[in-house]
Design a protein around this nucleic acid. Structure first.
Lengths: 274, 274
DNA sequence: TATAAAGGTGAATCCGCAC
DNA sequence: AGTGCGGATTCACCTTTAT
């Protein structure tokens, strides 16, 4: 198990190769199974560029459940007893995922709400603006109480008040959003670095190993490097691996966490590498 | 089926007596199955008065799932095709509940986050402050698209901007919280009226029938009456029924929804009856 | 150059009727 | 069930173009 590598391959197969009790933290951003059918247009008649990637399509709940049970079971096996796991999802999938995690014996520590500061509105006025995604933070089991949680650090980060389970963070847009040669977004679901900063800062120590089984464009690896953690990524698509590799190679500014939190009081963003 | 009544009895048995396709809205606040084993103490050694009621205890996930499947199945049967259902829960149970609802064919419209403005801190510093509960708002099924949603009204209520799925509302405390003769809270999980106001205002029309299968101290009935909707409550415990009956009888000030929304721009609280 | 206006876009389960 | 069409529907923020 070599740290700071991206493994190309099928998520479940590659997880099976990793040894028991070897990982300090897992961050997983699995397919959401969005079940989009028809095109959606804004009031000005422009088309919404929805998630139509093949990797997000599942034939049924049963198929999605089988997939999630398999990768989550492996995640639990390779997690250290002091480790924890984060899984992010939307209402489309998080109730399937949460149910499976409970069945596998994971113990929910928090359901953190990512409260988007700039969500896309509901154009037709048929629902409330869907302004959140949910992160499930879990230990390996009820009996594993000695997990890493940097309470004081997060309190300091939050202006000396205990950080709550609601995180107000904007979408990943602008300079931070990776673009392809055509100027379009390179990945449909790139997550903001601020989200990963809070995850990694709160639940790992320096030099810990962070695993991301759905590495995508490598946000987890990029933030892990900036915060002096090790990372292991698993990703199937070679285009994403190329993007992630370049992105992480460019990073030169790495931080002692204490220094970074001190700085972050004024500016909570880590520098984006050029 | 007589409107504006409280039915005493077992939730599932009483639901079975109600006719198909007869209810406009269901609000359900089921037991959370909190699994609190040890008492929780504050740093100053005072004991936190948690939820330790007998009705909140289930032997296993399987038992809880069986219970929820039964009452949710009946709810779906009695709901009109134009109706919707709200179920509130915390991370302890909402992933069981959500999974069951999906399996029964409910279609999730929003997962609304109740973002508590005054949550109880995590005294031990072992987790993030748990600042939310989740409300699942669902239609009877994907094919039932003509559900009631008062989009314009909620937009007006929200300062002429579309209301999002995050609702910042305080806990039910102070004058609004019902007390027993001993001065202690009369019910361990009384919900704030503001929560029910948003639920009823957004997803019913005047004179619609609102059913609450876990009526408790009758917050649903109280708000329904204030907003000129009908209610049906089901509740097992006679003490709660007495409290709820007295509470609802006291209400004299009822509102046309348009008037109330106009007023609510300055003061979002409906008057608490004396 | 500076400011304003116009255009683009984000994990989206987003209409309803007639034929 | 599928298609076609009239009509109602959006927020924050970034980029590009115009003044």
């Amino acid at each position: 198990m070599k740290p700071n590598t991206i493994i190309q391959g099928d998520c479940i197969e590659e997880l099976k190769k990793l040894p028991d009790n070897s990982i300090d933290l897992i961050f997983a951003d699995p397919p959401y199974n969005m079940q989009l059918e028809n095109a959606l247009y804004r009031p000005n008649n422009t088309k919404v560029n929805g998630v139509d990637d093949e990797w997000d399509k599942f034939a049924s709940f049963a198929e999605y459940d089988t997939f999630c049970t398999a990768w989550l079971r492996e995640c639990r096996r390779i997690l250290k007893n002091t480790g924890t796991i984060w899984v992010i999802g939307s209402y489309h999938n998080i109730f399937r995922v949460g149910n499976i995690m409970l069945n596998l014996g994971f113990w929910i520590l928090n359901d953190v709400t990512w409260y988007k500061t700039n969500p896309m509105p509901n154009f037709m006025g048929t629902r409330f603006t869907n302004a959140t995604e949910t992160l499930l933070w879990c230990s390996k089991g009820k009996e594993h109480k000695k997990y890493t949680f940097n309470h004081k650090l997060m309190k300091k980060y939050n202006g000396d008040k205990q950080m709550t389970s609601v995180w107000q963070i904007g979408l990943c847009i602008g300079e931070e959003r990776l673009k392809g040669e055509d100027g379009k977004k390179a990945h449909s679901t790139q997550k903001p670095e601020e989200l990963l900063k809070r995850v990694i800062l709160s639940t790992t120590k320096q030099n810990d190993v962070v695993l991301d089984p759905f590495f995508g464009t490598g946000t987890t690896g990029a933030v892990a490097k900036k915060l002096k953690r090790s990372y292991i990524g698993i990703e199937q698509e070679s285009e994403y691996i190329t993007l992630a590799t370049n992105r992480i190679d460019k990073i030169k500014d790495c931080f002692e966490e204490a220094d970074w939190v001190e700085e972050s009081k004024e500016n909570k963003s880590l520098p984006i590498s050029p």
